[in-house]
Amino acid sequence: MSIDVITIGEALLVLRPEGYGTLENARRLEVLVGGAELNVAIGLTRLGLKTAWIGKLPRTPVGENILNTIRGLGVDTSRVVWGSTEKIGIMFIELGIDPRPSIAIYDRKGSAGSELSHRDVDWEFVKMARHLHITGITPAISDECFKTTVEAFKFARSYGLSTSFDVNFRSSLWEASAATRLIGEISHKVDVLFLNQEEAQKLFALVGEPGEVAREICERFGCQVAVLKLGPEGAVAYDGNHVYKVKKKYPGVVVNRFGAGDAFCAGFLYGFLKGSTEMGLAWGSAMAALKLSLSDVNYPLVRMEQLTRLIESDKVVELTQLIDSEVVESGVGFPGALTYEVRR
């Protein structure tokens, strides 16, 4: 058996009011499933890749519900382990409509997912994968998860897997110094590094023209590709030779911003693993655009035909390779939300 991409992280129980209701006066809450690494795995599965998610869940009806949902979406869950606690990480959200922002409230302290240890991971199974993806949320939720993240990238490098890491820094979970230390430990074992402008400035004191920031990140940390997400302005990637820029927005109404960044990572990784950095930007941009239109899920429940139709339409500029500081334009931006979190 072979796996294209393995992700390691925490699954969350997501609770939200119906439609665009507010948490303050909600009488009923919808139940969804979330988690950054999980969102990426689902997105890649929807595009036809074989994926697996490794995490820890409580052995409760809620844990079984989440496991069955993940499995039903086509992600391999055979190496999910059961935790000693009955607690599941919870994410309360409300969808905002301009000018009212969306809101996310997290309660994941002491969750089963935060117990995940390197001893829980079936490393022989990981060997079967082509690529490993983890985000900065996983090492932030506990010391054990920090150690597991470091071990995962060491293992992946030893056995020839390509790797990606989405910085996804949350100041409510850990200090910037801890995130910087983690990235320093794993950076030379990461092939694709995703981060945004705020993270580049806060963690590495890097400001300036986005292409140059991406170039500096790539050269400083020795990654194959640095992808700098620019919010409404799109994204920039530097692959050691060329700078590519995502800028053009797809027309459409934004109904749900949650998970758009994960959708971008999934699309980028699909394009990157199938072809190139520029292909990654095209697919990542289209994937994020389609995710923004989905109100009832936080993961990219996108079909391949939808994606290819959008990429091939005249709504996107065709990508062509340019040299050094020149750029290629395409894509979409994806703004965030107000967040509140219980510090671990």
Rank of each mutant, 00 (worst) to 15 (best):
residue 291 K to Y: 00
residue 123 W to H: 02
residue 330 S to Y: 13
residue 243 V to M: 02
residue 202 K to S: 08
residue 94 E to G: 00
residue 198 E to K: 04
residue 248 K to T: 15
residue 329 E to D: 15
residue 220 R to C: 11
residue 12 L to S: 06
residue 278 E to V: 12
residue 173 L to W: 11
residue 147 K to C: 06
residue 22 T to A: 06
residue 309 R to I: 06
residue 122 D to M: 07
residue 158 S to H: 13
residue 39 N to G: 03
residue 123 W to Q: 04
residue 304 M to G: 07
residue 59 R to K: 14
residue 115 E to T: 04
residue 162 S to H: 14
residue 338 L to E: 08
residue 109 K to W: 08
residue 14 V to H: 01
residue 14 V to D: 04
residue 70 I to H: 12
residue 293 S to M: 14
residue 227 V to W: 05
residue 225 V to A: 12
residue 74 G to D: 14
residue 81 V to K: 02
residue 262 D to T: 06
residue 187 S to M: 07
residue 101 P to Y: 01
residue 85 T to C: 00
residue 344 R to Q: 11
residue 31 V to T: 04
residue 306 Q to T: 10
residue 54 I to P: 01
residue 200 A to D: 06
residue 317 V to C: 15
residue 153 F to Y: 09
residue 53 W to K: 07
residue 93 I to E: 00
residue 201 Q to M: 13
residue 260 A to Y: 01
residue 158 S to V: 10
residue 119 R to F: 14
residue 261 G to H: 00
residue 206 L to D: 05
residue 251 P to S: 14
residue 1 M to I: 15
residue 188 H to L: 09
residue 258 F to C: 00
residue 19 G to A: 02
residue 1 M to D: 15
residue 89 G to A: 09
residue 43 G to C: 13
residue 111 S to Y: 02
residue 86 E to N: 01
residue 133 H to S: 07
residue 86 E to M: 02
residue 123 W to I: 04
residue 253 V to W: 08
residue 284 G to F: 03
residue 288 A to Q: 01
residue 175 E to K: 09
residue 153 F to P: 04
residue 327 V to Y: 07
residue 300 P to N: 07
residue 204 F to C: 06
residue 160 G to V: 06
residue 15 L to C: 02
residue 311 I to Q: 10
residue 263 A to V: 04
residue 42 I to S: 10
residue 63 G to W: 05
residue 328 V to Q: 11
residue 157 R to D: 10
residue 216 E to M: 08
residue 154 K to M: 11
residue 136 G to F: 07
residue 281 L to W: 06
residue 253 V to N: 09
residue 330 S to F: 12
residue 129 A to R: 15
residue 134 I to F: 01
residue 155 F to M: 04
residue 33 V to Q: 14
residue 316 V to P: 07
residue 104 A to T: 01
